[in-house]
Every structure is written in C-alpha cells, then in structure tokens.
Write a protein that binds this DNA or RNA. Structure first.
Length: 545
DNA sequence: ATAGGGTTAG
C-alpha cells in the first residue's frame, strides 16, 4: 500500500509519454532504498489502473507483450469500464487477439460489459457470439444491455435463445427480462415470467421484487405492484421509488403523497433524488400543485435533505404550468440557479399550448427551435399553439422551417397485447393480417362517434392538404388502429391497454374517450410519459399531459 | 479466479 503510493509519486517526475518499462529501469538504479525493486509489473499496472492513468497503463501493456496475464487484463478492462473509455478498452481487446491470448469466460464477460457500457452493443454481441462457451453471466449481461437501452425485442429474443441453449437463468436474468417487458408493457408475458419465478421458488431477492413492482406498474397493473410492495419484508430506496413513480405515472397524486408520508414516518429508508423527482412529478400529474410546491420549498430550505437539482426545478415548472400559472413558471426559470435545458423549456411550451398562452409560448418556442432544432416535437407544439389561436401564417412558417431543417421524427408506433402476442401498428398501417376488418370498423366508429359529438381535431395534422385528406390522416394514427383492433378482437367490456412510443395526440386522446364511453370499456393508454386511464369518457390525466 | 451480470429517474 505504501509502496503503491510511493510509486505513484515517482511517476510524476518523468514525462508521461515515456514507455513504462524504461522508466522503471531508470529509477531502480537511483532508488535502491525502496523496499521491493524491481517492482512487480502487476503492481505497476494495478497502480496505474487504480489511478485511472489509462494511457500509461496501455503503454505498459504494450511493453509487456506476451506476459500479460488474467489479472492484468482484468485490471485494465475494469478501469476502462469505469471510465467508459472505448478506444482504450478496444486496444486491450486487440492486444488479446494479437498475442493469441485466449480469454477465459470471465474475461470475455468483462468485454461484453465493457462494450455495452460504452453503448457499443454490436461489438458486445460479437464477443458473446464468438464465445466457445457461455455462462449465465454472459447471457444476462447482454440481455440487460439490450433492455436498458430500450431494445426490448432483442432482449427477449436473446432470452429465448438462452433458454433453448439449456442454460438456466437466475434472479438477475429475470430482473433484466422484466425490464424488457416493462418497456413493451407486455402484461401477460410479464405475468408469465412472474409465475415462472414463483415456481422456481427462488429465495427472496429485493432486486427481483423491485423489478416486478416496476413491471406491473409499467404494464398498467398498480394493484399488483402494491401487493408486491406490501409483502416485502425488506425494502430499499428503489422499492419505494418504483412504487412512487408508478403512482406518479398513473396520475395518482393522492397515493403518491400518502406513500411519501409513510416513507418519512417509517424513517427507515432515506429518500434520494429520484424519490423527490417521483413525488414532485406525481403532484404535477396528479393535480396537487400546492402540495408539490410545499415539498419543493422544504427541499430548498432543508438541511440534510436532498438538494434540488435541475430536474427538480423542471418538475416545478411543470407544476406551475399545469396550474395555468404560466407567467410564474417563466419567472421561475429566469431566477433558477441553473441554465435551463431544452427539456425544461419544452415543458413550459407544453403548458403554453394547453393554456393558449401565445405571448410566453411564442418566445419559448422560438428559443427552443434555436437550442434544439433537431427535435420535431418542438415544431409540432409551436405550430399547434399558433393553430389554436388562428395564426395560420405562423403555422405555415413553422412547418416550412421544419421542412427546411429536415428534422426527422421518430416514427410513431402503437401496440396492444392479445394472448401474449404484441400487435404493433404504425400510421396508416396496412400490414396487419386483419387490416380489412380494422379499417371497416374505423369507418363505422368515425360515423358513430361523430353522431355522439366527436369532432376531429385537424390541427393535429401538420401536412398541407385539404380537410378531407387531413381527416383521413388523422383516422390512420397508430393509436387509433391499435384501439380499434383491440375493440374487434376482445370480448365486450374487456379493458383495452394500448401503448404508444411517443406522446399521444390530442385527437387520439379524444377518440379514446369516445371508445370508453360508447363501448363501456376501460381504456389504458400508456404514452412516452405517463398513463391515461380513461373511463366513461373521462381521463385520469385531466386532459393535461 | 467463484465474482461478475441486476432493480428506480429521463
């Protein structure tokens, strides 16, 4: 330990670019008083790696050529993982190949983890595919890499491949698979995995329980989440956060605040930054502005509490905006101790749209187009704002700007799970085997709903086409297709659960209300941000989202 | 060389 520190001090006397081995030989002659010289090369590497001196460590690696060992590679890779140093890690990998070193499973797993932490999933997958033998960690590391980055189908495919190969899973594998299912909101599949986990009679793992809480809430079944939460004999802050965020995403402000109070009263687990994000956004989505503002006030004044960071300030902008206090939100942004981010302006712009505040909205919108010109959503909201106040020339101006900048919108997709199968639709999708039935039903619904008072909101269509064409485009929106498909494929009164990868459009939201009212269906719509629970024509989001 | 891979937020 002392030696390490001494070695480290010595290094600073030499130019950093000098090859390491020459450096050592040069000072061994002067420093004979030091205890164990020449130093063990492993200790040299250890020191460099633990100091994060990657460049020097790589020079040492090159100098050692074939003498690199398991421990040396392990050390280097771990340092690269910690620093997310892609280039450096790649050189370590290349060194193994060049020296014909055959890494054992453990080291190959480190390579998979290294590549996936650097966001290089293809490289990670190559390592996995080339492994002569894999263990449970190899598979799990890759599955979780996919799940965490939103590649849910790839994660599931790989999980199936793992099962087929005869490898058995453990609780970490299940937790990763559940994350993938949360992303897809595949409730039935999630339940199946849950059942399987129960049958396996695994011991109690908090991590696994946490991912079950999250899976059920993201699949729209909060009752199950709460049941798991209540039955836990031991909880971590993540358990509380998962439950709080679940209520928040479902717009259940009262439950959020209640659970938060329970957490404070129990006084066993300390809230963290994520807890407060969940509570504040829960108050915002759940229509409890004043409670949220009070909690934020406590954060600002508190002593050993969580210190508010920019995202907490963002929640307050949301809170004020929702309450229609748009000017106040604007002033709040100007006074914050942080530089406002695009996301923060975006939330204010959303509030301006909902409350038709053209003065603030115009300023914020143009500001946003400057700092985030690649985000299509900004153009759409600003254009909708202009449309809602009849400023058609400005609508055209924004649309032209959007065309000029050629911003690409992530294609909207919606899906619905029936009999453990996900049926996915994009706008005006004609690929589904039952498309004819779906389109026939859509026409019927359009007429029926109009009689009941549905007015298509043409301002949701940005294309410059005539009204009839606009209505056609509107009717082809993916969430309407998925809803209609659900309606014709399930029994009367069965609830419908539709998921959309983007935020839901106002017209589709309204359309879903008519579905719920006229067909007496509970409609659960999950969009990018939150859940909409629509019942008898009324939505839990209070029409603000 | 018997661990590592894992859960919440956006």
């Amino acid at each position: 330990m002392n030696l390490l520190r001494k070695l480290n001090c010595l290094f600073h006397y030499y130019p950093k670019s000098a090859p390491f081995s020459s450096l050592i030989s040069s000072f061994t002659t002067h420093q004979l008083t030091l205890t164990t010289f020449p130093p063990d090369p492993q200790i040299v590497l250890t020191t460099l790696c633990s100091n994060g001196q990657l460049k020097e460590a790589l020079i040492e690696m090159a100098a050692r050529g074939l003498e690199m060992k398991f421990e040396s590679y392990d050390m280097l890779l771990n340092a690269c993982i910690k620093k997310r140093a892609f280039r450096e890690g790649q050189r370590v990998h290349a060194h193994m190949i060049k020296t014909r070193y055959l890494p054992p499973v453990y080291l190959r797993n480190r390579l998979i983890i290294f590549y996936s932490k650097c966001d290089r999933l293809r490289e990670a997958r190559n390592v996995l595919d080339e492994m002569p033998e894999k263990d449970v960690v190899s598979w799990t590391a890759m599955i979780s890499a996919y799940s965490q980055r939103g590649f849910a189908t790839e994660a599931l495919d790989l999980f199936l491949e793992m099962l087929r190969s005869g490898m058995s899973s453990n609780y970490v594998t299940y937790a990763s698979v559940l994350t993938a299912l949360s992303g897809l909101a595949a409730l039935d599949l999630g339940k199946q995995v849950h059942n399987h986990v129960l049958r396996c009679k695994l011991p109690f793992y908090v991590v696994l329980q946490n991912s079950l809480i999250d899976m059920y809430s993201k699949c729209g079944n909060l009752i199950y989440s709460r049941r798991i939460f209540d039955n836990m004999s031991e909880r971590t802050v993540i358990s509380w956060n998962a439950m709080l965020v679940g209520y928040s995403k479902h717009g259940m402000g009262r439950e959020v605040v209640e659970l938060y109070k329970l957490m404070r009263n129990e006084n066993k687990i300390k809230p963290d930054s994520v807890t407060l994000l969940g509570v504040l956004s829960g108050c915002s989505h759940g229509g409890m502005e004043n409670v949220g503002l009070e909690i934020f006030e406590e954060m600002v004044n508190g002593k050993d509490e969580v210190e508010p960071d920019i995202e907490h300030y963002g929640c307050v902008v949301d809170l004020l905006g929702r309450a229609g206090r748009v000017e106040e939100a604007f002033e709040f942004i100007k006074k914050m101790p942080f530089e406002p981010t695009a996301a923060l302006w975006g939330s204010l712009l959303g509030a301006c749209k909902v409350h038709s505040n053209i003065e603030v909205g115009e300023f914020v919108g143009h500001r946003l187009l400057e700092i985030e010109p690649e985000n299509a959503g900004n153009y759409v909201i600003l254009s909708n704002l202009y449309a809602s106040t009849g400023r058609w020339e400005d609508v055209r101006m924004v649309r032209d700007l959007m065309l000029k900048k050629a911003v690409k919108k992530e294609p909207g997709r919606s899906w619905i799970e029936l009999d453990q199968t996900l049926h996915s639709f994009h706008a005006s999708d004609r690929s589904h085997p039952r498309r004819e039935e779906v389109f026939a039903k859509m026409k019927e619904l359009s007429i029926k709903f109009k009689e009941a008072g549905y007015v298509p909101d043409l301002s949701c269509v940005l294309h410059d086409v005539d009204e009839e064409q606009k209505e056609k485009i509107l009717l082809g929106h993916s969430e309407k297709l998925a809803l209609t498909f659900g309606l014709i494929s399930t029994s009367d009164r069965a609830p419908l659960r539709v998921i959309k990868n983007l935020r839901i459009c106002i017209d589709c939201h309204n359309f879903a209300k008519f579905v719920s009212k006229i067909y007496m269906r509970e409609v659960y719509l999950r969009d990018k941000n939150r859940f909409h629970h629509i019942s008898m024509g009324v939505c839990s989001c209070g029409d603000y989202w």
